[in-house]
Design a binder for these strands. Structure first.
Lengths: 137, 137
DNA sequence: TTTGATAGTTTCCAATGGATACCAGATGCG
DNA sequence: CGCATCTGGTATCCATTGGAAACTATCAAA
């Protein structure tokens, strides 16, 4: 398919956005969202605001370091907001932004694909491994 | 909105697919496709079969090692096929499978999002960095 | 004969990510 | 009182990952 996606950029430059070029901004954005933790956090916040540890408890295997790091990046990218609330132990609430919501929807199609097709992938892996064993035995 | 996606799995197990659980197969698939090289290769092959070096030339920054590794993984997952052709220097053609094509379409929405929204992300980053500098100066 | 193309593998090093410990402030519990 | 626990992180160490470059092999063209 790969139609050409010519369009004007912010500054009126004539270069088309092209993630296949290492220096294109769309590529930087792609690198950013091709990240499992970002995908999972965004999907979770799309269902409503969450606090830091609450979020960590919901996402299996998410370390504090990566939670902190990923949330900071998402905030920098304008995809989530961080709000510190002066409760007794200070709680911090993370919420998705309108921009983040549009991404969450695009990303949701990936989650749905995984849910619908993981069995086909697992089957393919098994027959691949079996063929490898028969050849390389 | 995170509706519950209850459905029967291959073996008739009652556990719903849930990428938020570290051990769920959908999570393994998600880890797999949350990979910039896989995304870019799949998108490229969706436009037609490509040879190894041809593909490497089209994707800026893709090293031989990662090209080889990613293509091998994609083949194992049943998303692309590898065909060696006995030409004078042996050429190898990679093509997308029907299963891979369904994923490429889901993934394409990510590429489109990046193309449509990278300017908003860049703007957000700039104002974030500016705020940080003002506070932490 | 040296150079180039084909498609990789191997090796080395820098960067990323996970596990763990630690920090501060306040509350509960014995 | 004194220790554990909750909050949201930061700091550190180490294993794995990813990138750069060199190396493999075969054959063709210059």
């Amino acid at each position: 398919m790969r139609s050409s996606h010519l369009s004007e950029t912010t500054s009126g430059s004539v270069l088309p956005p092209n993630p296949y070029s290492a220096l294109c901004p769309t590529r930087m954005v792609l690198d950013r969202i091709a990240d499992k933790w970002a995908v999972l956090i965004l999907g979770l916040l799309d269902g409503g605001p969450q606090r830091f540890n609450q979020l960590r408890r919901e996402i299996g295997g998410l370390s504090q370091k990566m939670a902190s790091h990923t949330l900071k990046s998402l905030e920098r990218d304008g995809l989530v907001t961080r709000t510190a609330i002066a409760t007794v132990p200070v709680t911090v609430e993370y919420a998705i932004t309108p921009l983040g919501r549009t991404l969450a929807q695009a990303v949701d199609s990936l989650r749905l694909w995984a849910e619908n097709n993981f069995d086909a992938v697992l089957t393919a892996q098994q027959s691949y491994d079996q063929r490898s064993n028969e050849l390389g035995a």
